[in-house]
């Protein structure tokens, strides 16, 4: 790690820590921002680094959210009674019950999705290209529909989450820190992971899976691990997001396949996929624009966002980092002749 890079990390870390103190009113917005960064980073592990474009990563998010909710409530109450439509039970947790339940919930919300990822990887990784994308989309939609049909967890009626015991300011700060720490841990882990042989292996899978396999690479194992890593962090994110929102339901909050599920792809492509920082920058720009248009262009916000995305893919096809990289390769320490020609890749036609 060179020095400017270290300095920059420190600056960003300090900015992250002081942000909720400087702008306490924006804590929740900042916390959701971290979640969005995490979305983009974990998507990129699969989509960018390994070339498996998943449209269903949101399934781990939703699963984590529901596992955490069921654990938190189920430790002390009957979940089925609590989620009944008439909602007659009122949850009253002591601090200890709340934090204990939350800790166990988050832990299991990380483990559960990993198990699912292992199972799914056995089933889905035979699919390639668009088939994989649609297959994973199918899993996410099916998960949402089945959760909605499952009365015990409230079905489409959803679950009201236990209320955070601390005062008004405390709660935002608590979840802000939790989201930030999770995302930074995810960043550090991925950074380390990409510096090992692992990144070479998954890049090889992206570039030519059959050849990688022929060379003796255990592709199935690498793919499984890569997806499990995504699932692990997505599960935690789901658990935190569910608690932060206060009310969860399957279609719009837990498994928002067509909003968050697409956003994570959009953010990664916006910043530049296959890079560590591309998704982060993409998420920053995307999230900022989204919040801005929602405030200042009410009624036009989707038009603004849609036009932005279109302009982005039509004119900045390599993403922001890719665009900068093409202009100023020397900034990235690349000699011009090795500049990757990845931007003009035609995918397999039928």
């Amino acid at each position: 790690m060179t020095r400017p890079s270290l300095a920059l990390h420190l600056v960003l870390l300090v900015a992250g820590i002081v942000a909720p103190f400087l702008f306490p009113a924006h804590s929740v917005q900042f916390a959701v921002f971290w979640i969005f960064v995490l979305f983009a980073m974990t998507w990129d592990t699969m989509g960018g680094q390994m070339g498996y474009n998943s449209l269903g990563n949101i399934v781990f998010f939703g699963l984590g959210m529901y596992i955490c909710a069921v654990v938190q409530i189920g430790l002390f109450y009957n979940v089925g009674d609590y989620t009944a439509a008439s909602g007659e039970i009122k949850i009253d947790f002591t601090d200890q019950q709340y934090y204990g339940g939350l800790a166990l919930g988050v832990f299991l919300a990380a483990i559960g999705p990993v198990i699912l990822a292992v199972i799914l990887s056995k089933v889905l990784f035979g699919l390639r290209g668009p088939y994989f994308a649609i297959g994973t989309l199918g899993v996410a939609i099916a998960a949402a529909e089945l959760t909605a049909a499952w009365g015990w967890v409230g079905g489409g009626g959803g679950i009201s989450m236990p209320v955070f015991p601390g005062g008004p300011g405390m709660r935002e700060r608590f979840f802000y820190v939790a989201c930030m720490v999770t995302t930074i841990l995810c960043y550090l882990f991925l950074r380390w992971l990409y510096s090992t042989r692992f990144s070479l292996a998954i890049n090889a899978i992206r570039d030519d899976e059959d050849k990688a396999e022929a060379l003796g690479l255990h592709t199935a194992r690498y793919k499984m691990v890569a997806w499990s890593v995504s699932a692990f962090f997505m599960g935690i994110a789901g658990a935190l997001f569910g608690n932060m929102t206060g009310f969860i339901e399957p279609l719009e909050t837990a498994y928002p396949t067509l909003t968050f599920g697409i956003f994570m792809v959009a953010m990664t492509l916006l910043g530049g996929k296959g890079t560590l920082w591309g998704p982060i920058i993409g998420a920053t720009v995307f999230y900022t624009l989204r919040e801005l248009t929602w405030t200042y262009l009410l009624g036009w916000q989707y038009i603004a966002l849609g036009v932005l995305i279109i302009v982005n893919v039509v004119y900045f096809q390599q993403g922001i980092l890719g665009w900068v990289q093409a202009r100023k390769p020397e900034w990235f320490g690349i000699r011009v002749e090795t500049q990757p020609a990845r931007a003009v890749k035609v995918d397999g036609k039928p």
Partner: peptide, 22 residues
């Protein structure tokens, strides 16, 4: 892959996006 992004480019890109963001 991330090794490409050491140095000032990253700093600039981030500074800009962070400035816009905050």
């Amino acid at each position: 892959m991330h090794k490409q992004f050491q140095g000032s480019a990253l700093a600039r890109a981030l500074a800009i996006s962070a400035a816009i963001g905050v």
